[in-house]
């Protein structure tokens, strides 16, 4: 069993513990659930601001990744998969980014999550940055897709913390729609 992460002496605790994950699609293969789970690797878990920086400072910036890759930041105990109990009734806000914006947007997004800027109780599950050929995609996942007050608040906070142009298109998708 994995040891639980705890803040060290003098460190600033986070409201929740989180894990970073990394996944990379093997070119040409269909993404079945099994291969998705096999392709996703947990990088590490952290409980404090300082522990977060120790991981993050050594990670490649999303804008420097090549190929079909994703970084995931999820609360400890939640797998970055639709099938996880915390996610199965949930959904995600999706923002498509032109190339060159992913690194800055991803950093602003995860700092807002870790700092509890969304003010939606326990609703946030995690976030993903997906590096693709022509554009990059960031998404933030929450527990209850049917809770419109929560999803609206997440959308408004996203606009503020990402400092997005007013015409940026944001799309909400429930995970059950994504499975279909």
């Amino acid at each position: 069993r994995r040891k639980m992460a705890v803040p060290g002496a003098g460190e600033h605790p986070l409201q929740f513990n989180y894990s970073f994950w990394y996944s990379r699609r093997t070119p040409g293969r269909p993404a079945s659930t099994q291969s998705y789970e096999q392709n996703i690797k947990q990088i590490g878990t952290f409980a404090s601001v300082e522990q977060f920086w120790r991981f993050y400072s050594h990670m490649i910036r999303p804008g420097d990744l090549t190929g079909h890759s994703d970084f995931h930041l999820f609360k400890d105990g939640i797998k970055p998969m639709w099938e996880d109990d915390a996610n199965k009734m949930g959904g995600k806000w999706i923002i498509r980014l032109r190339k060159g914006l992913a690194s800055r947007c991803w950093e602003n997004l995860i700092l807002a999550i870790l700092g509890e800027q969304f003010m939606v109780g326990e609703e946030i599950c995690g976030a993903v940055v997906s590096v693709r050929f022509q554009e990059d995609i960031i998404s933030i996942w929450n527990k209850t897709a049917s809770d419109q007050a929560t999803t609206a608040r997440i959308r408004d906070t996203l606009r503020r913390v990402l400092n997005l142009p007013p015409n940026t298109i944001m799309e909400y998708k429930t995970h059950t729609d994504s499975i279909k």
Binding site: G8, G10, E11, H12, P13, L14, Q15, V49, E50, W53, R54, S57, N108, L111, A112, L114, G115, E116, Q117, V161
Partner: peptide
């Protein structure tokens, strides 16, 4: 209970702490 809230600037400042290395 209380929530532990940090703004972006505070989190970025923590990056320079020796504990963050």
């Amino acid at each position: 209970g209380t929530r532990i809230i940090y703004d972006r600037k505070f989190l970025l400042d923590c990056r320079n702490s020796p504990l963050a290395r």
